[in-house]
Each structure stands twice: as structure tokens, then as C-alpha cells.
Design a protein around this nucleic acid. Structure first.
Length: 338
DNA sequence: AAAGGGACCTGGCTGC
DNA sequence: TGCAGCCAGGTCCCTT
């Protein structure tokens, strides 16, 4: 599941491989992939044709490519649950958007064949079978030099669109940030993320502590702070020793700071290795213990001993999602409330 | 205004 | 063996 570290890894890959290229044509193969684009697929294609991709930008889990320096808006993408951006080079070599500078090539086998995904930095012996890439090709953007950018998405929670840029104060309604950013209009309500140098940490902490809701819900709220998804939320809460159902409004300033620091730290660590949760789906399904499984302390570890105290990790349904936590380290709000 | 819950979607897995 | 149902989850939208 792409969260901030994975999306940032993709952004870096796009910055390295598609900037400077000009769009020759765009083809939409699945209408749902462009459901957020006003005007539909034909309009999207028309707005992309002839535009040069000049920058790759990210906020939270959204990323976009500026069209003619932003004068023609931006090609915005959200990967949803299973989205990928793949770059097909003119020489026939396909690269994943997940590649950063200096990353290795990815071998793409015919549909249904085993693929060694080196970008996930798995042990060399770890081979997985991925669904047919072509079968889930949703949008194809052809460049004038023969390269192509593919939006591939199995579960179709992701989407792409072209939108105008709009100035936004700190990216969130009521935000107190002093730095004004220009972001695609659909991103205007998304708050800055924990890796954003312009993030106002003090204002964020204040807003977080004013929320009369569970702390996990609060840090998943992209209008409060962006980029955190279910996996890193569980990791951050475990590190900060906070029960996911603790009330945000009841947190001390120190606990709030520790939570934000923890979330930032775990995402930076994930980013340093090119994103860890990209293959969570496959790891879960195959039960394999690759790098991903070893690098997380909470998510996916229900029934296993807490790495801090040894108590068995517990999984509970919450917000229509699963939350995995340590019942001893992360005390239940009911245990401390009168 | 803010909070909370349901809908959307696919495919691997589980259980009958 | 076959197949219906479950589960994963980010975001939007609607209701309260």
C-alpha cells in the first residue's frame, strides 16, 4: 500500500526518468482511472498532448508532474491501494517509477511470469509472481521520443487527472502556515506532510490536540497531516506507546510530539530503503518474510510477541480497518479512564 | 464545523 | 474440486 515513503520513491523515479519529455498522445483504457478528471478521458488526452513534463512534485500521497512549468496545470496521480507508474524507455527497457537515482533496472517478464523486483530490495532469492502488468494498464501516456508513462492499477482505487494549479496557504483550510504553495486544485485540502520543510509543527500539534476523536483517526486525517496510512500509523503509535483509540484531545504536548516524531522517523527510515510497504500485499499473501516483514514492529504482527515487551500483539477492527498494537505497551484508554 | 460510517474495487485466500 | 464469501485499505461523500 503506497504511503508517503513509497510515493516519494516513485516521485524521485519520475524525476529521474520522464522530466523534459513531451507528450505525443495519451490513451485511457479504463474510465474509472480518470473518474476525477472533469471532462473524461478524451479531455484529459487533449490537455496532455504537446505538453512538456517539467517537474515532479509530491504532497502526502499525491504526486504530480508540472505541464509546461505549471502554465498548463499538472498531471496529478494518486496511487490508491495498488497503483504503479511505470516508465517505458524508447530502448524498450521498462523502469518502475519506484526507481530513484542510481537504482537498478527492473526486469518485466511476460504476463503471469515470475518477476524479480529489484527495486523492492528483496533478497536476490526472493521471487514473486505478479499479476499481468498489461492487464491492469489503465492510462498510457506516449512521449514524442518513444518513451511512455504507464499508470497501472489492479484495484482501481487510484486515479489520474489534469488540473490547474491553485495557490493554497499551507495546503489546508485554516492553516496558519506562512508559505503559500501552488498545488493542483484537487490537492488544495491536503495538509502538508511530516517531511515537508515548510510544515508548521507547532500548529500541527495544536490542531492534533484539539481533535475530539481517537488519535489514530486524527493522524490518518489527510487534512490535518498528510502521508500517513494504516501501516505507518500503527508503527508510529507503537513507537510512541499510544493506544490507537486514545483520544487525541487528551494527549500531552510531550506525547503529541513523540507521536509526530515517531511517524516522521518511521517514514524516513522506510524512504531510506526505497519504501518498504510497496510489497505489503504480496508479503501478506505469500506469508514470506522479506525485508518488509523484518522492518516493521506493529503492522502485520498480530499474535506475535511485541519486540519491546514480549506480550502478544493484538489486532482489532477499528474504523473499518485493522489496528495492530501491543496491549501491554500501548495501554487501552479504558484501562486508564475512571 | 467536525465527526463517523459506508461505498467503491479486485484478487488471493478461507471455508463449506 | 468448485465456488461463495471474506479481507485488505485511501479517499470521497453523505448523514448526524
Amino acid at each position: 500500500m503506497p504511503e508517503l515513503p513509497e510515493v516519494e520513491t516513485v516521485r524521485a523515479g519520475l524525476a529521474a526518468h520522464v522530466l523534459g519529455r513531451t507528450v505525443a498522445a495519451a490513451h485511457v483504457h479504463h474510465p474509472r482511472a480518470v473518474r476525477r478528471h472533469e471532462g473524461g478521458g478524451a479531455d484529459l488526452s487533449g490537455r496532455l498532448r504537446g505538453r512538456t513534463l517539467t517537474a515532479a512534485v509530491r504532497r502526502g500521497k499525491y504526486l504530480w508532474l508540472l505541464l509546461d512549468d505549471g502554465a498548463q496545470g499538472a498531471l496529478l496521480a494518486h496511487l490508491g491501494m495498488s497503483g504503479q507508474l511505470l516508465v517505458q524507455q524508447p530502448d524498450g527497457v521498462r523502469r518502475t517509477g519506484a526507481e530513484g537515482a542510481g537504482a537498478v533496472d527492473t526486469a518485466i517478464a511476460p504476463a503471469g511470469e515470475p518477476v524479480v523486483d529489484l527495486t523492492a530490495r528483496q533478497p536476490p532469492t526472493m521471487v514473486r509472481t505478479v499479476p499481468s502488468t498489461a492487464a491492469h494498464l489503465r492510462v498510457e501516456v506516449e512521449m514524442t521520443d518513444g518513451a511512455a508513462l504507464w499508470f497501472v492499477d489492479q484495484r482501481t482505487f487510484g486515479h489520474v487527472l489534469v488540473a490547474e494549479l491553485a495557490p493554497t496557504p499551507d495546503g489546508a483550510p485554516g492553516g496558519q502556515g506562512s508559505e503559500v504553495a501552488a498545488v493542483p486544485e484537487p490537492v488544495a485540502h491536503i495538509a502538508r506532510d511530516l517531511l515537508d520543510p515548510a510544515l508548521d509543527r507547532r500548529a500541527l500539534a495544536t490542531r492534533l490536540r484539539s481533535r475530539r476523536t481517537e488519535v489514530k483517526r486524527a493522524i490518518l486525517d489527510q487534512t490535518l497531516v498528510s502521508g500517513v496510512g494504516n501501516i505507518y500509523a500503527d508503527e508510529a503509535l507503537w513507537r510512541a506507546r499510544l493506544h490507537p483509540r486514545r483520544l487525541a484531545a487528551g494527549l500531552s504536548a510531550r506525547a503529541t510530539g513523540l507521536l509526530l516524531d515517531s511517524a516522521e522517523a518511521v517514514m524516513r527510515e522506510a524512504l531510506a530503503v526505497g519504501g518498504t510497504s510497496f510489497d505489503a500485499l504480496y508479503v501478506d499473501v505469500e506469508g514470506a518474510s522479506g525485508f518488509f516483514a523484518r522492518s516493521l514492529d506493529a503492522y502485520g504482527r498480530a499474535g506475535q510477541p511485541c519486540r519491546r515487551c514480549g506480550a502478544l500483539m493484538r489486532k482489532e477492527a477499528f474504523m473499518g480497518r485493522s489496528s495492530t498494537f501491543c496491549p501491554r505497551c500501548q495501554r487501552s484508554p479504558h484501562a486508564v479512564a475512571p
